[in-house]
Computed example of a mutant assay.
Amino acid sequence: MRLLYWSAAFFLSLPHHAFADPVDDDDTPAAERSTPCTITSAKSGAFFDLNPLHIIDPALSTAANPRNYSWNTTGFDMGYNFTLNFCGGVVEDLTKRGVVGVHKEDWKNVSAFYEQDGKIYSIGQTSYHPIIRGRKLILNYTNGSPCPERSNFDEDGEGNGDGESKHNSRIRRKTTIISMLCERDPLYPKLTLSFIASPDECTYIFEARTKAGCAGIETTKQELSPSGVFGVIALVAVIVYVVGGCVYSRMVLNQRGWKQLPNYGLWAGILGVFRDILILVTASCARCIPGRRRPVHMNGSLSYANRGRSGRDSSEAENRLIDELNEEWDDL
């Protein structure tokens, strides 16, 4: 009981900051420090994670048969279909054919596109920041290919007729709006993507029905496995036992040296037992080495095959070994 008191006193004497969480000196807003492609509602606290919808590049996937195409949906009367990915660029290789109006270094970040007349048009770059509007979860892709000429305006609000505005910054680019709807049916596909409308061939509206669109609870990633947690607890317990026992033995019992260890007599006895077992095993193995004498039973009595030494010397050596072991046991 006194050992428990001393251990508790030892831990209570440690400074408070030894157990406090590390100080976060990062000035980055919380919304930007959260996991990409996730969001938590400020009003309800509902948590949304769109990462399960991400299709990994087959070259980086560890799956046996990785998927080599992105999500697709029909454009109906548009005359072309759409290809999209979530939380990353599409897995299709766009570097061989290029993307209209997009810099080459940005081709790998295209998250939505369509193909028309042999050309590829981007309708938005990758976005890792979903937003909540009212009760709707929205994902918005921007900075796609330039919009058609009639959608470009100069500072006076009138088109200049050549497809370019007086200022390049005024050129409108294709964007994508995806409304994420909740689908909890376990038999429903992972994602159902539907094209809704494109009012001016510059903004494209989609509807995605998926389980990822349902509100959930944010879970903190566990850094240690269950065995790791048990190992940490066991290590802390051993440290408390050793440190607390040493403090108690030194301060209360006035012990010094190895005797400061808690239950020194018990551990010394256990080590002595293992030492005696090791001696007996060593002695038994030594008699089995070739060239050594071996016991032979003849006429019901035990004799020794003497190879250069007499049986009397062997018996005396064994008797001395037994006497030494008996003396060591008596000392314990």
Rank of each mutant, 00 (worst) to 15 (best):
G118I: 06
G88Q: 00
K108C: 04
Y128L: 07
Y121T: 06
Y121D: 08
K104W: 11
L94I: 06
V102N: 12
D117H: 14
V91T: 06
E92W: 04
V100Q: 14
S127L: 04
G124I: 07
W107V: 11
Y121R: 10
Y121C: 10
Y128A: 03
D106T: 05
Y114V: 07
I120E: 06
Y128T: 12
V110E: 00
G101V: 07
K96I: 13
W107H: 13
H103S: 15
Q125L: 15
V110F: 02
V91I: 04
V102D: 10
Y121S: 07
D117V: 09
G98Y: 11
I123Q: 02
K96N: 12
Q116K: 15
G101D: 14
S127H: 02
G88M: 01
H103L: 13
D106L: 11
V110M: 01
L94H: 04
V110L: 02
V100D: 14
Y121L: 11
W107T: 03
Q125P: 02
E115C: 05
D93N: 13
Y114K: 10
D106A: 10
K119Y: 13
R97W: 09
N109T: 11
E105A: 12
H103I: 11
Y128N: 05
E92A: 00
T95Y: 14
D117W: 14
G101H: 03
A112M: 09
V90N: 03
L94P: 01
F86M: 04
R97A: 14
K104V: 14
Q116R: 14
V99H: 00
V99R: 02
S111G: 09
F86N: 03
G118H: 01
G89N: 01
G89P: 00
K96M: 12
S122A: 09
E115L: 03
R97T: 15
V100N: 13
E105S: 10
W107L: 07
V100T: 15
K104D: 15
V110P: 04
C87N: 06
E115D: 04
